[in-house]
Nucleic acid binder design. Sequence first.
RNA 1: GCCUCGUUAGCUCAAUUGGUCAGAGCAUCUGACUCUUAAUCAGAGGGUUCUUGGUUCGAGUCCAAGACGAGGCACCA
Length: 571
Amino acid sequence: MPSGGGCPRGCPGPEGRSERPATGRGHPKRQNQDGTGSRPSPNRPGNRQSRSPRREPLGAPATADLWNPRFMPDTPPPVHDAPKGTGAALEKARRDKLDKLAALGIDPWGGRLDDVTPIAAARSQGEAVAKDSDAGPTVRVAGRIMLQRSAGSLVFLDLHDRTGRIQIMLGKKQVGPEAWKIVDCLDLGDLVGIDGRLGWSKTGELTVFAAGLTFLAKSLETPPDKYHGLVDSDLRQRMRYLDLIHGEGVRDRFVARSRIVEAVRRTLADRGYLEVEGPTLQETAGGAAARPFKTHHNALDMPLVLRIALELHLKRLLVGGLERVFELGRVYRNEGVSPRHNPEFTMLEAYEAYGDYGTMMDLTEAILVAAARAAGTPERFEWMGHTVNLAPPFRRAKYDDLLRETTGCDPTDPASVAAVAAGHGIETAGRHPDVVKSDLFEATVEKTLSGPVFVIDYPAAVCPLTKRKAGQPHVAERFELYVAGMELANAYTELNDPDLQEELFRTQLAGLPADESMARMDTDFIKALRHGMPPAGGLGIGIDRLVMFLTAAPSIRDVILFPIHRPRAGG
RNA sequence: GCCUCGUUAGCUCAAUUGGUCAGAGCAUCUGACUCUUAAUCAGAGGGUUCUUGGUUCGAGUCCAAGACGAGGCACCA
């Protein structure tokens, strides 16, 4: 966390805070940022009674228990002082209430709470209650106070948990003057448990009529605007926890991500695949053409790089007889950021012995269909200006055919390709014809591919890990799956000839800088191939892009909980 | 790394040609209200206009540099 990073801009940093008048207590926030352990704890007793959390049944509880007094403060409440209305004053108002709670014997930081009914479940119970009944069932719900409305000595709360929202009504007459002191200490954003009867308000809203309240956690920060929420996309990513609370559909999207990953795993497991974990710290970053992040191991005093792909270790496992393996994990590429790129991202790679790239096309379709179903994505929808239809089988189109249709060049004639490429401003002099061809494809064909479409049979020179087509040494058995102009998956019939693999590792393609090339000898991998790797199909899917696609997210940062950011200056 | 755009109260946003323009809503505080729904009503407080320089009688506004972000380019076979 950057210095003061939890604080939106304009919020005074630690320096600013230290100018506040002494408050008689340490500043918990600073303590946390230093990472120094113990905070001064007028409000935190060492051993909380909440360790023995079993509560009285709700039938005939003592009022005192329902209002949950927990402890007596061991120091008098401090005096806070700050100008009204500033950020500091907003926090002061909340700290004052926190101290007031402590003075009332309430632990403002709560503890274990059993027998909580999810709000969605409480709602369905409530639906069964007659509109004019005052004998609805009693429930305990817990969550965050999102809205607060008072009408005289009556307070309505909107309480949210992971399953939904429900209205709470608290009445001074109903709970008594002592308990009302606790209600006076509630702020937007606080976490509370509510015991009460389900029923309907006079205006017809399902409501929990509170008979008891358990304080679970005080919020010391002002929540974002209750109507607009947090709209600054930078703040939304840096303070994702707030975005999850207030952002429209944000939580749903990350829930969908989890369901998608679950569906991917299930699809593979159903086909007999074994999930494994390869090393992220490697001596040589292989399996893709990307610059790696560099690091260092102290005890071994050796340079290491973070992996850029999963491929080479999974193929070693094919040699080892794990005939169907996959890994779902993070890879790291030291490259720029864009709406489609984050330097760390999640990749699926799967390898199936005795298969080929056709096997992988079937698998890809199965994974996409299962993932779409898990995410609740319709079969047909619009995304990024493209109409997408997920009904299999997906279209299969040859690389050369697409290039010919789109550009009019003759893909089999390097001179023709070079001429057209030059017309698109692509450098051709001194570069391998297949690299030029690849550049031309990316510049012209990619963006036109609404898809999903399997682009098959790639120029061999740009595919050093791929088996060549029988009798066609210039064509590699590879496909990429495109959707809405974006590469979503990449698969090969895997090259298992160790001599050819070694030769290809040695080949530096003309026109490619060394750090962008895949020409990195991995002798240990070659050694593994020499022991005999079964013919196999291999598949890679970018999980982040898959989630973008299935949740119609315009940017990869919308599907990564904590995307990379520069540290925020100031605070 | 390059180009364009943006940054005003805790949050969401105003501020005409450079001229009493630093303002509103939410939030906060005080008061009223026992059925509210972004509750309402009355009042109060709250600002390093991202930072640093410059031009000017005068800068939120114009210029330069920097910070951070968004989009595009490059990189990402």
